[in-house]
Write a protein that binds this DNA or RNA. Structure first.
Length: 206
DNA sequence: AGCACGATTGCCT
DNA sequence: GGCAATCGTGCTT
């Protein structure tokens, strides 16, 4: 059985290409042997130092952004609004502070663990709750148990990684549009650097 | 040492 | 639709 885990060469390419091609791939987090897995359905590219929407804009290099200046295929996880985590994949090559934010996934495996992490209970969920499990960057981190402790994790490792699409997933159409909640980024707010799977119910917004 | 703010979310009217 | 929660981070004093 050949491995489905994406190799580092997948990440060491143009960031927009990686953002597009991450759609349909499966994000996996294994905790104590329990697998939580979801299909990536929405991403955004952040391409410093030129991108005014990126944390690395202007070459800002701080303890928080340091991981983005390293080699590709590592996790960049940061805290937002004092209570939520956002998971990113470091892309391209060292010294180029670029990353892809994973904004939404569709649960594939371990949904009970996700429900426990999100709502503190397992069992029947309403239709609204099922969607709310993972239809946003903060939500998917909570569902998968991804926190700032995972900042710098090697995505070519055994705990947190991304795999090839399943044959059963089928084809999909990609929508390319502007990024969300970066109004402060001036002209960069208009770049079409957000990608999502058309008509997928777990996309954070239309 | 102080402070303004955020690549979000959930609850309120 | 509006808005509060909550705190690490980065920049200023």
């Amino acid at each position: 059985l050949k491995t489905l885990k994406l190799p580092r060469t997948f990440y060491s390419r143009d960031t927009l290409t990686v953002a597009r091609e991450l759609l349909g791939k499966h994000l996996v987090h294994v905790i104590n042997g329990v697998v939580r897995e979801g299909k990536i359905v929405e991403t955004e590219a952040y391409i410093g130092p030129e991108d005014k929407g990126a944390h690395s804009y202007g070459g800002r290099r701080t303890p928080r952004t340091e991981i983005m200046y390293g080699p590709p295929g590592y996790a960049y996880v940061y805290l937002i609004y004092g209570m939520y985590n956002c998971f990113n994949v470091v892309t391209n090559e060292a010294e180029k502070p670029e990353a892809v934010l994973v904004r939404a996934i569709e649960p594939v495996q371990g949904t009970e663990s996700m429900s426990e992490a999100r709502f503190g209970r397992i069992g029947t969920l309403t239709a609204r709750e099922k969607i709310s499990l993972t239809n946003g960057p903060g939500k998917l981190c909570q569902a998968l148990g991804i926190t700032r402790a995972h900042n710098g994790f090697d995505l070519c490792g055994d705990a947190l990684f991304i795999t090839e699409s399943e044959a059963s997933d089928g084809p999909f159409e990609v929508v390319e549009t502007t990024r969300i909640n970066i109004d402060y980024a001036e002209e960069a707010a208009l770049y079409p650097w957000r990608f999502y799977i058309k008509d997928n119910p777990f996309v954070s917004r239309k």
